[in-house]
């Protein structure tokens, strides 16, 4: 067997590898380019245009963004959206975490059953889970008719529905599973020996919770919290159904620009603003994640 000068040959570029990559990723990448990146870029372009007498003028200007920050009306809507998103995130994280911890304490079939119960709400209609609260908090809802029936009140309470409170309740209700599921997944990954070691070293259960379980479950908390914040910030179902005049959020204003107000460029600018807020939140989360890695 003669194999002289074999090694002088340069290996060719592995075309088959590139070909396979394109075959697998290509269709989805193309789809993402055309239907994710191009639309967002398009939105950005629109946000620099303006309308004049209900026609869009393709004239680059920053007027839309100036309008957002100069008008007290829009600023208050943005502030309200941020406030609602923050309240909902805090409540959903606390309650979702407690729920995940509760389920993680069980073993065997009971745990499987409880996990199942935790997941079901995620699979049920968002719309349905929001409008239920009209049934509960409304003027003739369960709480008011219940209170009247028991004779506690003569007049229905009106503070329950069509305000910021009802929006926060409904959104918290919707987003608890969004936190509970990733937290549960993170809790499941903690080796029991870690906790035994902590107890063995004399730590109380609460100290263990604070110093061991909580830090180790951050990889679940952070994505859960981010989802909740981003999606509740831009939600339009809950404020439309339950918000009333004091519960207006940014998405309702955006929808309005594309509907009756017919100011697409301004609506686009507001949408870009939402994207920027989401981007900042995600960036902060990644920063946090890296710190705790």
């Amino acid at each position: 067997m003669i194999l002289t000068e074999l090694s002088s040959r340069k290996p060719a570029i592995d075309w088959s590898w590139h070909l396979r990559l394109v075959a697998f990723l290509g269709p989805a990448a193309l789809y993402a380019l055309v239907f994710i990146l191009v639309p967002y870029a398009n939105l950005l372009i629109y946000s620099f245009w303006k309308t004049d007498n209900y026609t869009i003028v393709r004239d680059f200007n920053l007027g839309n963004f100036a309008r957002v920050f100069e008008s007290p009306v829009y600023l208050s809507v943005i502030a309200n959206s941020l406030l609602v998103a923050s309240i909902v995130t805090i409540c959903a994280v606390v309650l979702g975490y407690a729920l995940a911890l509760y389920v993680a304490f069980f073993t065997g079939m009971r745990r499987k059953f409880l996990y199942f119960l935790m997941v079901i709400p995620l699979w049920t209609s968002f719309l349905l889970r929001a409008f239920i609260w009209r049934l509960i908090l409304g003027r003739e809802g369960v709480i008011n008719s219940g209170l009247a029936w028991f004779g506690f009140t003569d007049e229905p309470l009106s503070v329950l529905l069509f305000n910021r409170f009802s929006v926060c309740v409904a959104l918290t209700y919707v987003f608890i599973p969004f936190v509970a599921i990733p937290v549960y997944a993170a809790l499941e990954k903690i080796p029991p020996a870690t906790l035994e070691a902590s107890m063995d070293l004399g730590a109380s259960p609460f100290y263990t919770l604070r110093r061991i379980i909580l830090p180790l479950s951050l990889p679940g908390i952070i994505p859960g919290a981010i989802f909740t914040f981003c999606l509740s910030f831009g939600d339009f179902v809950a404020p439309s159904l339950l918000g009333g005049p004091s519960g207006i959020m940014i998405s309702s204003v955006i929808i309005n620009q594309f509907g009756s107000a017919f100011d697409w460029p301004f609506g686009s600018a507001l949408a870009i603003f939402v994207i920027v807020v989401v981007g900042i939140a995600v960036a902060l989360a990644r920063l946090l994640e890296r710190r705790y890695e």
Binding site: M1, L3, L6, S7, R9, P11, D14
Partner: peptide
């Protein structure tokens, strides 16, 4: 794996 340099027979 493909070698960076050299040959396999």
């Amino acid at each position: 794996e493909v070698p960076d340099r050299g040959a396999v027979a």
